[in-house]
Write a protein that binds this DNA or RNA. Structure first.
Length: 910
RNA sequence: GCCCAGGUGGCGGAAUUGGUAGACGCGCUAGCUUCAGGUGCUAGUGCCCGUACGGGCGUGGAGGUUCGAGUCCUCUCCUGGGCACCA
């Protein structure tokens, strides 16, 4: 009788799997293929418990598919380019390449003990020249296909990272990694023309049946399709070569409510005008600054704080500023109607035409602007019920609401906004002074980064030929090893020789492009590369056709827009360039977005002397101090749990592991407990992190795997608790002990209740199989707990208990593969669990010949009866009326009604 | 502000098409075992009344549909997420 010993068992089975090559994804034409992929990690150097959850989920799917006879591809790699390596280089004096390689080695070493069913032969890192060289080849193909281009553009400049960011990488006006407020700059940059595919990327979302609706919705919102009218408002007096102002609107039906035209401070006409108008130039510059630095927003927040309120509404209001340019335009529907042209800080150059017409009655921003500067407010429609002119709130009903129109130019009287918009576009197109236009919020993907540690963009700048693509035979364009990372800016710009090349076209002296690609490019096609990681072309036609699509993709919901949208674009671009079959333009058949692992935060408050104040005063500052979970011991005190610092207890010679000591210590130092802040996202600064390596060392990989799948549904966050991890370990120990007990049974001893155990086993097989298929891992585990309980109490004979134990091991195998192999071996089974065919639930054990029929009285359950399945209605009624609880309720009377749902339920209505 | 997802015991959470609410785990209570304690085992555990038999209430709140509602409908409150001067 041996004890459960994961430390001894787990490495042994891992070697065994390696020796047998069970995870090697050699194409097997006799089996259906199945490609499982988890989003690959950034090699930060340490695995995170969130990684463990992510990869364990993928592993359950992969192992289950392996057992159901699939040819499984389950690879792993590293998203290895990116800024942290450069930062580390500066901080540690270590080359980014070395830092990255070391981190990869460290993380691989931390991941391998998890026993994941990964084909490690396919492993690669995006910083391998073999990988990024192929990416450069793709870039050249995209360029040739018109999918990439170089052009000047206003870009988001992150002053901390000293590079530009894509729109998707700017969150709340701040860089997604640095958190710095981004500035706007005009730079010549490389773009992928993702906006050309906006419509396709939007409509194809409908076909993604196995994607979460939430992710599809987020993408649809991001693409942001709108239909509207674009029309010219002629200038009364042409100026600076402009005859009129192009305006885009989604509400052409409200054209008669116009009160002014407003231009973005970046509008070309404003820039042209500023030359001759000092006041305008000053005002325009001020407004642009407010865009760039968010100045007025910050000021507003500050003002609010000093006045004691920080309501989001007040801050969000954002003061509207404008200058009257003095120009006037004619209304497109009425040449006699002249309107003023303003420049306004709330008009964006990036959307529409950078010019709007203000309709204060039906737009809150325009109303605020009009009220501030005394511009007219004209109602164009009113509510059917209680029509009233607009005063301090713009009237903006949903476009599907019917409203009453005031003297509408299309002749409408009562109509919805939608109908009015359609009518207005038709009307204006008929008059020839405007056209219906569909627009998208999605803009092109700027991929240029002024950084070292990324994939070089393979083009050359030639004084004679201009921008020339590199020749494919010269790829990969490798990053130079000898770079100076100590100074700010792009080290490739400063490199003495790397830039100097011959022009691929004319052979003259030329300069290499020094921008590198956004790291999201690296992760936009790795899934395709995994199908043939050694190919001399980006993909290999036959193998990519065999393995694509990814059948199940798993990752965090934080990539719902960025990564997944780029990957969808890339798949289409790859297809156009002949690297992916058409069937793979949507590369991920099914997507699962898993929740985070969270943990409570332990915080105390330290009083430290405040040296900035004169000594005479009571000068202390109270600062928060956070504690790692392992520094804290939890103690049950009455009905509440308190956290105590182990180190403090030890200093006072108390044993933190001893409950009585904890009690004594608490009594002696009553107020030294630590605040417990409920579950939050793990964060290093709050120290609420758990180290998977430490947990694996303590309990084994199977316990960690079991735990991260337990309790919470996988799409939701799971709270890591020490008690939960203990419970997982105890359970696995009990399963092992049960297996030992059964192994030690007398094989010939008779037993009782064989049938019941087998029924329970087959029900469990049926239910666990269904649960795994629908990602209900927490439910599957609950059922395995329940079945373990039944087996543990069973008095069945040895043969049946052994069979049940083996079935249990198989069902547990995707979650706790090492333990399952151990049990399998202990009971003398052939081969490995991992390659054994998945058990089948047999119909004869699932069929029931009796049913327990709950009896409700007036809809509330009062009793139940056991009857033969499909028993005749009148027989059931007799039994129901004879039931003690029913008789008591009837008190000799007859029920008003008796509802009988066969084999399901009975309801007696009094 | 707009859009989306959720609110179920002390806690994490179960609950096919409307059909026994609270599976399973944690915690707690009692007992047993070992014992200095933890561990292990057995039983109990939604709330209220009742010694018990039993009864009443109960899935954020208020209404509604139904023989029957966690599930469907209307309104409302709260929490989390996404987007946001997008014209």
């Amino acid at each position: 009788m041996s004890r459960y010993n994961p430390a001894g068992m787990e490495p042994r089975w891992q070697s065994k799997w390696d020796e047998e090559g069970v995870f090697c994804a050699a194409p097997d034409p006799d089996k259906p293929k199945y490609y499982v992929l988890e989003m690959f990690p950034y090699p930060s150097g340490r695995i995170h418990i969130g990684h463990v959850r992510n990869y364990t989920m993928g592993d359950v799917i992969a192992r289950h598919k392996l057992a159901t006879g699939h040819n499984v591809l389950h690879p792993m790699g590293w998203d290895a380019f990116g800024l942290p390596a450069e930062n580390a280089a500066m901080a540690l004096g270590k080359h980014p390449a070395d830092w990255t390689r070391d981190n990869i080695a460290a993380m691989r070493a931390q991941m391998r003990p998890l026993g994941l069913s990964i084909d490690w032969v396919r492993e690669f890192a995006t910083c391998d020249p073999e990988y990024y060289g192929q990416q450069q080849a793709l870039f050249l193909d995209f360029l040739a296909a018109g999918l990439a281009e170089r052009r000047p553009a206003m870009v988001n400049w992150d002053p901390v990272e000293r590079t530009v960011l894509a729109n998707e990488q700017v969150i709340d006006g701040k860089g997604w990694r640095s958190g710095a407020v981004v500035e706007r700059r005009e730079l010549t940059q490389w773009f992928f023309k993702i906006s050309d595919m906006a419509e396709e990327l939007l409509t194809s979302l409908d076909g993604l049946a196995h994607w979460p609706a939430k992710v599809k919705l987020m993408q649809a919102n991001w693409i942001g399709k709108s239909r509207g009218l674009q029309c010219t408002w002629p200038l009364v007096t042409p100026v600076c070569g402009h005859d009129g102002v192009e305006v885009y609107t989604t509400r052409p039906d409200t054209l008669m409510g116009a009160s002014f035209v407003a231009l973005s401070p970046y509008h070309p006409l404003i820039k042209a005008l500023e030359g001759g108008n000092a006041a305008l130039a000053e005002g325009g510059a001020e407004m642009r600054q407010s865009f760039e630095r968010g100045d007025d927003r910050e000021k507003a927040i500050l003002a609010q704080m000093f006045q004691g309120g920080t309501s989001a509404a007040a801050v969000d209001a954002g003061e509207k500023i404008g200058y009257d340019t003095g120009l006037r335009v004619r209304h497109p529907l009425d040449p006699d109607w002249e309107l003023p042209v303003w420049v306004a800080n709330f008009v964006m150059m990036d959307y529409g035409t950078g010019a709007i017409f203000g309709c204060p009655a039906h737009d809150q921003r325009d109303l605020e602007f009009a009220r501030k500067y005394g511009l007219p407010v004209r109602d164009t429609f009113m509510a059917l019920k209680d029509p009233a002119p607009v005063t301090d709130r713009a009237f903006v009903p949903p476009k599907t609401d019917r409203v009453k129109w005031i003297d509408h130019f299309t002749g409408l009287r009562e109509a919805t906004g939608e109908e009015a918009i359609d009518a207005a576009i038709r009307f204006i197109e008929g008059k020839g002074c405007g056209r219906g236009v569909t627009r998208y919020r999605l803009r092109d993907w700027g991929i240029s980064r002024q950084r070292y540690w990324g994939c070089p963009i393979p083009v050359v700048h030639c004084p004679a030929c201009g921008v020339v693509p590199e020749r494919k035979e010269n790829l990969p364009i490798e990053l130079p090893r000898d770079v100076d990372l100590s100074a700010p800016g792009n080290p490739l710009d400063r490199h003495p020789t790397w830039r100097n090349v011959r022009c691929p076209a004319c052979g003259g002296e030329a300069l290499r492009e020094t921008d590198t690609m956004d790291t999201f490019v690296d992760s936009s096609w790795y899934f395709a590369r995994f199908t043939a990681p050694g190919a001399k072309t980006p993909t290999d036609a036959a193998t990519v056709a065999r393995w694509m699509n990814v059948d199940q993709y798993i990752g965090g919901v934080e990539h719902a827009i960025l990564h997944l949208l780029y990957a969808r674009f890339f798949a289409r671009a790859l297809h156009r360039c002949g690297h992916l079959p058409e069937t793979a333009v949507e590369p991920f058949d099914a997507l699962f977005t898993q929740g985070m692992v969270t943990h409570a935060i332990y915080r105390s408050w330290d009083r430290i002397p405040d040296h900035s104040r004169p000594k005479s005063e009571e000068a202390v500052i109270i600062v928060p101090r956070y504690h790692y979970p392992e520094e804290v011991v939890l103690h049950q005190q009455g009905d509440k749990v308190v956290a105590l610092l182990r180190s403090e207890m030890k200093e006072d010679k108390f044993d933190p592991e001893n409950a009585k000591d904890r009690d004594d210590w608490l009594r002696a130092y009553e107020r030294r407990e630590i605040e417990i802040i409920p579950s939050a996202k793990m964060s290093k600064s709050k120290k609420n992190v758990v180290d998977p390596v430490a947990i694996i060392d303590r309990y084994g990989a199977d316990t960690v795997r079991w735990f991260v799948l337990s309790d919470s549904p996988p799409e939701r966050d799971v709270e890591w608790t020490a008690a939960g991890a203990e419970a997982a370990f105890r359970h696995l120990s009990r399963v092992w002990a049960l297996s030992e007990r059964i192994a030690g049974m007398d094989p010939s001893a008779p037993g009782a209740g064989d049938e019941g155990v087998l029924r329970a086993l087959h029900r469990t097989i049926r239910d666990v199989t269904a649960d795994i298929a629908r990602f209900g891992f927490n439910s599957a585990i609950a059922r395995l707990y329940a079945f373990t309980g039944i087996l543990a109490k069973s008095t069945a004979g040895h043969a049946v208990q052994r069979q049940a134990m083996m079935g249990l091991a198989q069902l547990m195998a995707p979650m706790v593969p090492h333990l399952a192999e151990g049990i399998w071996e202990r009971h003398g089974s052939e081969g490995l669990v991992v390659t054994a065919p998945w058990p089948r639930a047999e119909a004869r054990y699932l069929a029931e010949d009796t049913v327990t029929l709950p009896i409700q009285i007036n809809g509330r359950r009062k009793s139940d009866i056991v009857v033969a399945k499909d028993l005749a209605r009148d027989k059931v009624e007799q039994l129901v009326l004879a039931d003690a609880a029913v008789a008591r309720a009837l008190q000799g009377g007859t029920p008003k009604k008796l509802i009988l749902v066969p084999n399901r339920i009975v309801n007696v209505v009094l």
